[in-house]
Design a protein around this nucleic acid. Structure first.
Lengths: 226, 226
DNA sequence: GTTGACGGCGTACGGCGTACACCTTACCGT
DNA sequence: ACGGTAAGGTGTACGCCGTACGCCGTCAAC
């Protein structure tokens, strides 16, 4: 294993890029320091010269892909700007499916993340939102501001459609769940068949919130005097 | 190690109860098959007679604590009923702080979880919500229906308040984040000091959604013909 | 040419989940 | 009373994981 045999020397960036690529392909559960090292043709401990530990690796990966989101693009009014931004984030999340779980467990806010939030908050404040309202609005958007929601029925590997007997049992045991599941968003609500259009659901909730926010802003909302 | 030395025999329930207790006290990262076994005065492999594997253990734990939520209590109108239910769930999540992360990674819906969802959905349907609307509404509530939101600034171990120099740097680098963070919900927005009232934020967003939902329901909302 | 920093290597430790084979107990029908 | 059988508990072992520590080769700056 010559250190510079044609694979060149490692550096932090190459490590992170490889980690992202590997995780994009094999999933978050698959990545480990040892496997990443193997991928790079290097002994596990070599990675520790570029990354403090595994947590720091994940931090770096998140940071790296978050830069794919460029600076925020003004779309005229605050509503469209925010909406577009959040949907762009959502698209990023779709490209890197491991990102959600990583963001959820990050404990330190990196400059990149703070930057992202700052730019989003700026939109509200520039549009004349009071600081208090902005505060609550950001909380209300919650993880949606990162482009994701924890869905109720998230199913990474969707189950096969139930057999008629199973269905019979289910609709007797959980009639309401079945009735609700039987509705498909943009198709004519036949049977379960993929259930629902995630994109539609996301925008539905997002718009519900944005509409509510609009009203509060227009009415010069102020926090209740407790 | 006599098998029945005064600690009695194990069974699935005792295993799960012990697991919940241990995790309540030491946190989700602390629990492992080996430590749980030690806690029960038993060799690690003994647990596998009561639980298929660690995932199943977590399933069982989630299931167990979810039963703490009794049957749904009718509060008159759908809005109050749903609201009370969700706030009760939130309280449960506060009692078992590990539960959020566990629910988020569950892959199989257990009967208990389906039951919970079913009862919630039932409220909407009984109130005359169409199935489509109910469907979207449940998605919109998303993880809030489980009593939690992934907050933007969740900080399990909150950082010490920044020193004046740090603050100066931060407010120059991320002016909007700092401005927003400086607002405290139910106090007269002074300085950062604990930032915000999580309960208020949760209800704020929940009510925003419930209000939006009310409007849709009153207007007999129908999905857009694409 | 020497020196130092940096990158990479090897070994080793303690922890994890769990497969497999075995032993012990409790309880059952006879 | 007794033998059988399933359920509960044990011991050993494997392959993974993250990473501490110490060593060595390479290369750049002097």
């Amino acid at each position: 294993m010559p250190p510079t045999a044609e694979r060149g020397r490692l550096n932090r960036e190459r490590v992170l890029t490889a980690a992202v690529a590997y995780t994009d392909e094999h999933g978050l559960d698959a990545i480990s320091m040892r496997r990443l090292a193997a991928e790079l043709g290097v002994v596990p401990m070599a990675l520790y010269k570029h990354v403090a530990d595994k947590e720091a690796l994940l931090d770096g990966m998140a940071d790296l892909v978050l830069t794919e989101l460029g600076p925020i693009a003004d779309a005229g009014d605050w509503r469209s700007t925010v909406r577009a931004r959040i949907l762009a984030a959502r698209e990023l999340l779709a490209r890197h499916r491991w990102l959600r779980r990583v963001l959820e467990t990050r404990v330190q806010q990196t400059p990149t993340m703070l930057n992202y939030l700052d730019s989003l908050i700026a939109v509200f404040r520039r549009a004349g939102f009071s600081d208090v309202l902005t505060h609550h609005v950001m909380h209300a958007l919650g993880s949606r501001a990162w482009g994701f929601t924890q869905e109720l029925f998230d199913d990474p590997n969707p189950a096969p459609p139930p057999t008629p007997e199973q269905l019979a049992f289910l609709s007797q045991a959980f009639p309401n769940v079945v009735a609700m599941a039987a509705v498909a968003a943009h198709s004519d609500g036949s049977v379960i068949e993929r259930g629902c259009d995630d994109q539609f659901e996301f925008e539905f909730a997002l718009d519900l919130l944005l509409d509510g926010i609009s009203v509060l802003q227009a009415a010069q909302w102020e926090p209740p005097r407790n």
